[in-house]
Write a protein that binds this DNA or RNA. Structure first.
Lengths: 248, 248
DNA sequence: GTCTATACCCCGATAGAC
DNA sequence: GTCTATCGGGGTATAGAC
């Protein structure tokens, strides 16, 4: 009897996964706005009405795809972090962990552009993501916070400076998001988080066409600057900033 | 006779504008992927086949909307720049111009979220923007370059530092985009450009929901940091960066 | 330049048989 | 759990009359 239930449960899981896999395939061709249960059913060789046993509506299928995508990119970020933590000694500094997480997110996005568009692109008109997507959506940001937390617990972190109005918002954010970090760091983390997805989004969505050629080098340099802005890079002995003036 | 032609031309322009206006309205409700000539015709009270006298296909209408949107946000950026240049003496420094342009882009985006999604969000599946959209698309970036150019011609600009691999790409970019600026500045401008739209996109697309509350203060602080990264902010006499360590 | 009519497609969702 | 059939919509694009 438990065997029978197990078999049925497995069949149900397999069908559910097959539906999602075909839907993901169609995301690439038609986009989320046109995701269609009928088209999925046609490709799977079943009646469209059969799919309603697995997903009560088109929007529920969309929600499942969104949660899966957030979890996939979040898992990439977490795996990259773990690998960096366990890696060579020189790879363990906060900046190296930061870079590893950012690169993992970018690589996931480039490998899954349509799922990236689903979660970080334009909202799907007429669809509103339920609150149940929030935990999955928070995983990447959580990993960025973790890197900053490591650094703050380590030998020292350079706190970014803030204007006065921003300071109020920074304290509010810190209280809600990471009370164990200085408000200025939390604030800088949130800006860096948004900016990271600006870099990735422009690449995935084609805005760098004929602008940026060596996109990997570009990205790595940019996220190093972000790490610096967050305060993860300790000042090294370095030459003074060069200054240019037309009156040299 | 020229009067007759003028009247006809005006009628044609008015109908073209009416079609685009209704299409923009529908962009908000259904999104670009579902933009439909029939629905536009229905709302305008004409036969759908009549619209083919104005736009040979749905994609041509989409292209017109995209060009209009790029021009609108570009014009906002340019107007904000001009106003900053003509403004109070303290508003004329490079950082103030930079902030003015960024704020104008953000305000346009918040006022026109669906047109923003059309040009900076997920690509429309099955649609490929023709090269004719490029000049309009370049206007915002061009205005950011202009701010940097002003600064470079002025009393001095702090050149960002670059890694070696990034240096090669920076020189290539500078040659193509702004040969009159130092490669490191051009490189930083491109990263700041992408990051600016990361900040705006996250706000417009709802990623800041329950994360950022005072979004204006957040944005202004973030774009000031971007101005600094580009080298537009000259170092002022300021206290050394505070350092934190748990072993204080 | 606008119309009607048409060819040929698409969709979400449900009812009820098996 | 899957099917057929159905309701009630939706779409692009063209032909040919006026």
């Amino acid at each position: 009897m438990s065997t029978t239930r197990g078999v049925r449960a497995r069949a149900r899981t397999e069908m559910t996964e097959a539906i999602k896999a075909e839907a993901r395939r169609q995301l690439a061709e038609e986009g989320a706005a046109k995701l269609s249960l009928r088209a999925v059913a046609r490709e799977l060789g079943v009646a469209s009405s059969a799919l309603y046993r697995y997903f009560p509506s088109r929007d529920e299928l969309l929600t499942a795809l969104i949660v899966d995508a957030y979890n996939a990119v979040g898992a990439s970020a977490e795996a990259a972090y773990e690998k960096a933590v366990l890696g060579d000694p020189e790879g363990r500094c906060p900046a190296a962990r930061w870079e590893a997480v950012c690169v993992a997110v970018r690589e996931w996005a480039l490998a899954h552009p349509h799922e990236y568009a689903l979660i970080y692109g334009s909202p799907v008109p007429g669809y509103s993501a339920p609150e149940s997507t929030v935990p999955a959506a928070a995983r990447v940001a959580g990993q960025l916070v973790q890197v900053a937390r490591d650094a703050y617990r380590g030998p020292g972190i350079a706190e970014p400076r803030l204007g006065d109005e921003a300071g109020v918002e920074a304290r509010r954010m810190a209280e809600e998001l990471a009370p164990d970090l200085p408000p200025a760091v939390v604030f800088a983390l949130v800006t860096a988080w948004a900016q990271l997805f600006g870099l990735i989004g422009f690449e995935v969505f084609g805005q760098f066409h004929r602008v940026v050629e060596d996109r990997s080098a570009f990205f790595v340099q940019a996220v190093r600057q972000l790490a610096h802005d967050v305060g993860l890079v300790r000042a090294k002995p370095e030459p003074a900033r060069p200054r240019r003036s037309p009156r040299d």
